[in-house]
C-alpha cells in the first residue's frame, strides 16, 4: 500500500494540535511530539503551561547553560519563569490534574481505540514501562488530545478497533491528531469521525491506513493550520 501523498512531519502535527488551544487555557504537554506544540501557539492566544514537576505558567526553555536545577519541566528540561508563575509540590500538581483544572493535555500514543481508549505507556517488546503522570492526565484533564504518527514503523495502524497494548486510560481520548488525519472520538462509543486529512489524501486513503471504521464528517476538509 503506497501513500497518495507525503505525511506531515512532527512540527506540522504539533502546529495542528496547537490550533485547539484557546486563550487562557491551562495546558499540560506530554513528552515527544506534544512538547513541540508550545512552538506553535497561535498569535493572540496565551496558554498557561502546567507541569507535573510542580510549575504553573512556565516560559520557554532556558538558554544553554543558563537554566536552574530548581526549575524544570516534566521532561527534566530547564525552563524559564513567566510573570505570574506559581510553584507547588507533587500532591498539589496532581490535585490540579485529577481535579479537572487542566483544560487540555496533549499526550503521545502507541494505540487509540474506536471507543477512545489510550495505550501509551507500555511497549510489550521492552517488557517494562514508565507510567509517570499519563494515567492521571488521561483520567483528569478536561480534554485529552493524542498526537502521534498514524502508523507505526512497520506500517501497523495505531488507530484501532481495540487496543492490544496495556491501557493508559479507558474512553479518555477526545481528539486524535496524526500525520495524515484529525479524528474526533465521538462520545458514548459512537465511533470515530474523520474531520481533516493531510493534503493529497482522501477519506478512502485514510480509512485504508486505519485499523478501525471511520465516519466521514460532513465538513471533511484538508488540514488547516491558520
Amino acid at each position: 500500500m503506497s501513500d497518495p501523498a507525503p505525511r506531515l512531519d512532527r512540527d506540522l502535527i504539533a502546529m495542528r494540535v496547537a490550533r485547539e488551544f484557546e486563550d487562557g487555557f491551562v495546558v499540560n504537554l506530554g513528552i515527544g511530539i506534544p512538547t513541540l506544540c508550545s512552538n506553535f501557539v497561535p498569535e493572540g492566544v496565551q496558554v498557561l503551561y502546567q507541569s507535573e514537576s510542580g510549575v504553573l505558567n512556565y516560559g520557554p526553555l532556558a538558554e544553554e547553560g543558563r537554566g536552574s536545577i530548581d526549575l524544570i519541566n516534566a521532561g527534566g528540561q530547564f525552563v524559564t519563569p513567566n510573570p505570574g508563575m506559581a510553584l507547588f509540590d507533587s500532591a498539589e500538581a496532581f490535585a490540579m490534574i485529577r481535579g479537572g483544572h487542566i483544560d487540555v493535555t496533549v499526550l503521545g500514543g502507541l494505540q487509540v481505540s474506536r471507543a477512545g481508549d489510550l495505550a501509551n505507556w507500555f511497549l510489550p517488546s521492552r517488557g517494562i514501562g514508565n507510567v509517570g503522570g499519563a494515567m492521571d492526565l488521561a483520567a483528569g484533564a478536561r480534554k485529552v488530545i493524542v498526537a502521534m504518527e498514524h502508523n507505526d514503523r512497520t506500517g501497523n495502524p495505531k488507530v484501532v478497533d481495540q487496543c492490544t497494548f496495556p491501557l493508559t486510560g479507558a474512553r479518555c481520548v477526545d481528539l486524535i491528531v496524526t500525520d495524515i488525519a484529525v479524528i474526533e472520538v465521538l462520545p458514548d462509543e459512537r465511533g470515530l469521525l474523520l474531520k481533516e486529512h493531510a493534503p493529497g489524501w482522501s477519506f478512502e486513503a485514510v480509512q485504508k491506513a486505519t485499523g478501525a471504521r471511520l465516519e466521514r464528517s460532513p465538513s471533511l476538509a484538508e488540514f488547516t493550520f491558520a
Partner: peptide, 8 residues
Amino acid sequence: LVPQGTFV
C-alpha cells in the same frame, strides 16, 4: 509501578 498522582 504506580501512576504518579496516585503515588504522591
